[in-house]
Amino acid sequence: MKAVGFKHIYGPVLSRRLGRSLGIDLVPFKTCTYDCVYCQLGRTTDKTIKRKEYVAVDAVLSELERKLATGDIPDYISLAGSGEPTLNTCIGELIDKIKSLTDVPLAVLTNGSLLWMKEVQEALMAADLVLPSLDAGDEYLFQCVNRPHKDISFEYMVNGLAEFTKRFSGEVWLEVFLLAGVTGIPSEMKKIAALIKKIGPARVQLNTVSRPPAEEFALPIPPERMYALKEFIPGEVDIISENKEDKVHIFASYEANEADILALLSRRPCTAEDIAGGLGIHITEAINTSKH
């Protein structure tokens, strides 16, 4: 008999940043503070800064307990998914309860747009790792690339990132998503680099388009160009790539089912190889299920 599917939990995902990451979705699909031109999930359908209890803590914990009981232990538990997780007012309570449930490190993948709010900063303090974003060096390109909610200014966002990073006892890994001919040019990288110095993350992770974006004009930067742009950035810098040699070898200890695969695909575009690696199944099973 197939296991009952999960409503809020998906994966593990074979993440280029976190290894095998078990995702938790805290908001409805495409409920976000931004409408980024590069988003692999398409256009935002509910652009908001209204925080509320989109998903109940007890419902998430019940699913997480069932998932961990399978014996398949991920490298990270990630609060991420198909929207902006900090929009959920219960995120702090959930982090605390997950930390009391398991020793698996907990990461929060956020666009960082609400970190100027003290209550959002406080909610994330118990996490092990926070991965926010900075995709532009000024207000103009912030509006062009991230298309934020009208009540989010570039200044508020950057100051929130800097203040949170100084207060947070865990590590902050700042993702910088670059677009060819827009932000991936020396003049813009110099602006971004100055802000990175102000924010002070433990490491910076440069990324670019690798899956179909929300807008056709959001174009990727070739690997050799990414390495050249890396030289502008101070401190520890990673290039997030799709290279096969970066893949992690997986040996899962439980049997993934169709519901697991469909839950993963509903939140993240994946190749058959991604599915097989994350869920620990044979690639032919991933191909057959993803066709249905």
Rank of each mutant, 00 (worst) to 15 (best):
A136G: 00
T44D: 10
S78M: 04
L79F: 12
W116N: 11
T44I: 03
E155V: 13
K52I: 12
D72F: 13
F154M: 02
S78Q: 04
T110G: 04
M157I: 03
V108G: 04
V120G: 10
T70S: 11
L61V: 02
L131I: 15
L94E: 01
L94A: 07
M117S: 12
E139W: 06
M117H: 13
N88G: 07
K47M: 14
G81M: 10
A59D: 14
D58E: 13
V104R: 02
T110R: 10
G83S: 05
E84Y: 02
A136V: 08
F154Y: 14
G83W: 09
I98P: 02
N159H: 14
L64M: 03
G137K: 05
S153Y: 07
I49T: 15
A123I: 09
L64H: 00
A107H: 01
T110E: 02
A127F: 01
L94P: 01
D46R: 14
D151P: 03
I91T: 03
P105Y: 09
E53I: 09
E63H: 04
L79Q: 01
A107G: 10
Q143A: 12
E53M: 07
Y156R: 15
S113P: 08
T70W: 11
G83H: 09
Q121H: 13
H149I: 08
G81K: 06
E163H: 13
L94G: 05
A69W: 06
Q121T: 12
D103M: 12
E53T: 12
P74M: 04
L101M: 13
Y54F: 15
W116E: 08
T45M: 13
Y76G: 03
E65G: 00
L64T: 00
F142Q: 00
M157G: 05
S82A: 15
S62D: 12
D138M: 07
L109F: 14
V120D: 10
